[in-house]
Design a protein around this nucleic acid. Structure first.
Lengths: 225, 225
DNA sequence: GCAGGTTATGTCAGCTACTGACATTCGGCA
DNA sequence: TGCCGAATGTCAGTAGCTGACATAACCTGC
């Protein structure tokens, strides 16, 4: 098992057969670990929660924990994976008439709002993700791990943008540049949102994101005064 | 000793008195640790180098190592600190007529080129930094730590930009947005440079950075075709 | 429904990053 | 010279993480 960054445990190739007991159990264990970890992290903080605690909360050995997650960071960040995947899906489905920038903007907004009115996914997974994002900013090692993930996500965005516009991303730098700008914009918005004054929940997040997008052109424009 | 992210060991307030033996020794030890670490990292990789190795290469105890650096990452990234500081200084000195974007662009270019023709700093510290940047991309935990540092640097840039333009960065988002865009652009350029095809050395780096800057407006422009 | 291969899990032993507490030594200074 | 404070060393301990091997659980074909 254990591929690179599995959002779920690996199913053994094409979903031909119905999952089978073994697969279901793995999925169960994985989910249980994520949930237990999340609960503990929120209660006592990331650093003060040991892997042993998480493992024994789910009643598996520490060794098993590390077979599901490469490290402690990974469980913590697993919650976000759903949202990320959904965003990419949204981006893939944007109409071709939109400019790339418009498509990106519309995609995150849609992703947040859809996941907010959560029928798409498990009931509270969005709130988990949001709580986690607040914790991120106060937990340096977690933040570091998260940022690394973000840059990987960025690669994916480059891919999708390039496909969408029919470009070779090694030739034409525009996809890479736009993806980078987009990622950093989101990151700033997240920081601002986590800093607190903003309204909570997905709607609040969307509001902040939109404000940052609106400031993109002005920030790049010539002089500011 | 040991403040937050000291580029050098702390000197006991205003540099009134000449450093004194104690301070010089600390500085010496610190430098020796950085150098030894760097050498070992390049030879055998980051993960396969233990802190004990580094410490005993300089003939201090492991405990002492951790009094100079909070963790293994920090030694590795210490080399970049000089360059970062110099960049900020450049930015502070840009003429007010330049637009913020121009000022940023001119500052990194100048910083790299100046440090390249290294009289400003220790002879090979630039090459160390460049070698390190290559290693970064292949060393996930290091990359993660680096990214976190970058976001802290970003805060500083926001400050400087806001001062320069006489704005309150909590009111006006333009400094934050521009700093974010700038950071992500640099990051992309670094990735591209590390990926290899580019000419080596500071000049190569500058070339890549300029290319990314040139693609900024086009990437944000409406449609790409 | 059972034999035999595959796959997840547990156990154990070990390494390394990192930390607190306390003892020791060394530089600064009267 | 002798005292104070700062830097270092030593030691013991915690926690993240890994390899090796044994055991137990599923699955597959008969």
């Amino acid at each position: 098992m254990a591929a690179r960054t599995p959002r779920t445990t690996d199913t053994p190739e094409g979903s031909a057969h119905p999952p089978g007991l073994r697969e279901r159990k793995k999925q169960q264990t994985r989910d249980a670990l994520v949930q237990a970890a999340h609960k503990l992290f929120l209660r006592q903080g990331f650093a003060r929660t040991t892997v042993d605690e998480i493992a024994s909360a789910v009643d598996v050995s520490q060794r098993t924990f590390f077979r599901y997650f490469a490290n402690k960071d990974e469980v913590a960040l697993a919650v976000m994976a759903v949202a990320e995947d959904y965003f990419i899906e949204c981006l893939r489905n944007r109409p071709a008439e939109e400019t790339p920038l418009q498509a990106l903007r519309a995609s995150i907004v849609k992703a947040w709002l859809d996941l907010g009115s959560a029928e798409t996914t498990s009931p509270d997974s969005i709130h988990s993700a949001l709580e986690l994002m607040r914790m991120l900013e106060e937990t340096p090692p977690l933040l570091a791990a998260h940022l690394r993930r973000v840059t990987e996500q960025e690669r994916l965005v480059v891919q999708v943008l390039a496909e969408r516009e029919g470009l070779d991303p090694t030739e034409d730098l525009r996809p890479a540049v736009l993806a980078a700008v987009f990622a950093s914009l989101l990151r700033s918005a997240h920081m601002s949102w986590s800093a607190g004054q903003q309204p909570p929940g997905p709607e609040g997040m969307v509001a902040v994101i939109e404000r940052y997008f609106d400031n993109l052109a002005p920030a790049l424009a010539g002089h500011w005064r």
